[in-house]
Each structure stands twice: as C-alpha cells, then as structure tokens.
C-alpha cells in the first residue's frame, strides 16, 4: 500500500494557483522530501495531506483513506509539525509533551522508546519553559510532540528552517532512525543540500512538481557536462564567461561559477577570451552536478517551455 497517493491535486487561492496538478506517491517507511523555495506550495500541500485544507481538484489518499471524507480517522494516525513549531511557550517541556500525549489519547510512558533518541537531548531541561529553549531544542521538542502518539505518517513542514547547522545535521540523523519504527516521514525544506538526506525527493516550484526521484538519480538527470571555473574576481569572471560564445549557462555557486558549454566542450579560446577581458587566473575543472544544478536546469526548461 502507498502511504500517500496523490492524483492531480490542485488548489487555488483566488487567482493564484498554489498547487497545480500534483501527482505523486509516497512509500512506506521512506523519508520523502519536498524541496523548493518559499511560496512553492509546500505548506499548502502539507495542509491538504493533514486534512487541514480541502483540495480544489484531484484526489488524495493517505494511509489508504480519502483526505476529504476520512479526515477524522486520519487525524488520529498522522503526526504533524507545522512550520512554526507548535509549542506552548508558556508551558514547560514536560507539560507540552504530556499535553500532546493526552490529547492524542496516549501517555508519554507508552511510546517513550519511540522518542527516546530525540527526547533524551532535551529531557535535562524538562522543567524549562518551551519559550526559553534554543531553536534546535524547540525543534526536537516539537518533533517529540508530533511523534508521541506513534503516528504511521509524520508530516514535517520546514523543520530545519532557522536552525543552526549543527542542530540541522542532528535532526536529520534522528529522522533516519525513525525508519526502524516503520514511520513514514514527509518533510519539506528550502535547503537543496538536505535533499541528499531523503530516500526520495520531489522538486517543487510554483505549485508544480519538477521531478520526483531518488536524490542521486535526480542529480544524474543533469543533461550536460558540468564544469566549475574560478578566479579571484568573481564578478568580472561571471560577466565575462556569460559573454563567451560557447557558454550555455553560467551560475555563481559559492566560490566558483558552474558553467556548461554547447557541445559539452570548451577549448583554449575560452582562456584567450578571458585573458582578453583581463582575467588571467581562471582555473576550470569538470564537476559532478548537484541537486541544485538539476533544479536550475529544470527551472530553465520550465521557463522556456
């Protein structure tokens, strides 16, 4: 059985098409990521999955149940962590956890083994008010609260936004451990690099899915040969390289510029050209495309199509 089966889901807010014809499915026990910028439609989609919004078009079954008709049943079986951590800042860590446990008809004790890995990080602070926790600790508490009723499906909307790199990395380690409890995780993030931590990802932009696959396969989907080129003067480099006739695309990527050529080839004329533009220190090498390169390529195709 598919954990989520979405067929041509569409949602409009007034004139704005927030979601457009989304068809995808999520398998049991996988970590499925929706990767895309703010405003791509991730939150709207997650609210449909958690029965908080009704789709305008299409059908969606979650855990085999229709999201529109079966919302009561689904609400028991799903764990949801909204974008803003849904914690009560004026309650302590322990009070938050106990409240959510009782509301979902269970006790902290009953499912403690499930959250032990996560909760053990914050248990020393259980008497502290949730509002006084750091971002990383809040996120762990919110995750514990969303997990406490042992949901079959865990829906996490941008759990790592605004969290420091160390906590982010820990968080993904913790999500990985949930696999052994056979909990399916659907997670969204604007950070491209986090795609690699998912089993499968959907790249989403302007309410449309650009691609769904394993992250490595998405990466390999990059259709051209990718090169990186670097120089001390990045701004001159990128303007110059763009003007070079053989260049197809050129994007700044951190310290370097990612570049593709027509025919996937370049020759010495490139260096002569750059030298003519006053750039003498350019170094070029072939590189493996990342998720972000592929995302850029897909966006460009979307723009020209």
């Amino acid at each position: 059985m598919k954990i989520i089966d979405s067929w041509r889901i569409g949602k409009k807010y007034g004139e704005v098409q927030a979601l457009d014809d989304l068809t995808f499915s999520v398998n049991e026990s996988e970590i499925f990521g929706f990767i895309g910028p703010d405003g791509a439609g991730k939150t709207t989609l997650f609210r449909i999955i958690t029965t908080l919004l009704l789709p305008d078009e299409g059908k969606m079954r979650v855990l085999g149940v229709d999201v529109v008709r079966g919302f009561k049943e689904l609400r028991r079986k799903t764990g949801y962590m909204p974008g803003r951590f849904s914690l009560y800042n004026d309650l302590t860590v322990q009070e938050n956890l106990e409240f959510y446990a009782t509301v979902f008809g269970t006790t902290v004790k009953e499912n403690y083994d499930l959250i032990a890995d996560i909760y053990s990080h914050i248990e020393p602070f259980r008497k502290r008010l949730a509002g006084k926790l750091s971002g990383g600790m809040k996120q762990k508490l919110a995750l514990s609260c969303a997990l406490i009723h042992k949901p079959s499906l865990l829906v996490l909307d941008e759990p790592t936004t605004g969290i420091d790199a160390v906590s982010r990395s820990e968080f993904w380690d913790l999500l990985g451990k949930l696999r052994k409890h056979r909990i399916t995780v659907v997670v969204s993030t604007p950070y491209m690099d986090e795609a690699m931590r998912c089993d499968r990802v959907a790249l989403i932009q302007n309410g449309k899915i650009l691609s769904v696959d394993e992250p490595d396969k998405i990466r390999q989907g990059f259709s051209r040969k990718l090169f990186t080129i670097r120089s001390a003067d990045k701004y001159s480099l990128i303007t110059a390289v763009r003007k070079y006739p053989g260049t197809l695309t050129a994007y700044p990527f951190g310290e370097t510029v990612h570049i593709t050529f027509s025919g996937d080839l370049y020759d010495d004329s490139l260096f002569r050209y750059l030298e003519g533009m006053g750039i003498k220190d350019a170094v070029i090498s072939e590189a493996e495309a990342g998720i972000e390169d592929r995302f850029l390529e897909l966006m460009e195709k979307g723009a020209t199509a």
């Binding site: 910028p37 703010d38 936004t161 491209m192 700044p252 995302f295 966006m299 460009e300």
Partner: peptide
Amino acid sequence: GVDPITRR
C-alpha cells in the same frame, strides 16, 4: 528560502 535562480 528563495529559488535557486533568484538566489544567483
């Protein structure tokens, strides 16, 4: 939070 093209 912005898309890859805009970011660049």
